[in-house]
Amino acid sequence: MIGLDQMDRRILALLQREGRLTNAELSERVALSPSACHRRVARLEQAGVIRGYVALLDRAVLGRRTTVFVEITLSGQADEVLDAFEAAVAQIPEVLECHLMAGTADYLLKVVVSDTEDFAQLHRRHLARLPGVAQMQSSFALRRVRETTAIPV
């Protein structure tokens, strides 16, 4: 865990909202010299606090309006079963997130598709063929109430 001061937190908060800020813009917004700001950002990158920079795409514009949460229970908990499942699910582009869970399901997937027919095809071609799956339950999101990639700093 890296020690973050208030200036680091301000920099991180701004970069999470506006990742394309130039160093000059960022330094002005946090009231720091450009060279000091650059050193801080470089330190945060090197420490792994900042993992990378991405463009956030609009799912609806790209025709991926439907979000489905899929709970998966595996047939066993042996390392080879978990490893095979995780390797296979990592190859499915529609799976945005895959979490190993404690609770009623072993894994929770967040999937984006264009509509229910698209999900049916994904289910048939990929999800139903995942190794070690004993049971699967899908829940369709009706409306996105809140979504963010920003971590509180």
Rank of each mutant, 00 (worst) to 15 (best):
G63C: 03
V81R: 03
L15S: 13
R51Q: 12
L57W: 04
A36T: 04
C37N: 12
V153T: 11
R143I: 06
I72M: 13
R10H: 08
L108E: 14
V49D: 03
L44A: 06
I11Q: 03
A128F: 01
V30D: 01
Q77R: 14
S114W: 04
M101N: 12
D115G: 12
L44V: 06
R29W: 02
G3R: 02
A47H: 06
G103E: 14
R143K: 15
M1S: 13
A24Y: 10
H126W: 11
E147N: 11
Q6V: 11
T66F: 00
F69V: 14
G48W: 06
L12E: 03
A36K: 05
R51S: 09
A141C: 13
E94Q: 15
P34W: 01
R64A: 10
L74A: 12
R29E: 04
D83T: 14
A87H: 10
Y107K: 09
I2L: 13
L44S: 07
A88L: 06
I151G: 00
L14K: 12
A134M: 07
L62C: 10
T66S: 11
F119Q: 08
D8K: 03
R59K: 08
L122C: 11
L122F: 04
S33W: 08
P152W: 14
T149P: 00
F119P: 07
S75M: 12
V49L: 04
R40W: 00
D83G: 09
E45Y: 03
V61G: 05
Q121C: 11
L32F: 05
L21I: 07
V49C: 04
A105N: 14
L32Y: 05
G3T: 08
A24V: 13
G103A: 11
A134V: 02
L56D: 01
A150G: 05
M136D: 01
V81F: 04
A88E: 13
L127W: 00
E80H: 13
P34E: 08
E117R: 15
A36I: 04
R59D: 07
I72R: 01
S114M: 07
A102R: 14
V49A: 05
Q16N: 08
Q16K: 09
I50S: 05
R59L: 11
I92Y: 01
C37M: 02
T66L: 13
S75D: 14
E80R: 12
L56G: 02
E18F: 10
T149S: 09
E80C: 08
A128S: 15
S139M: 13
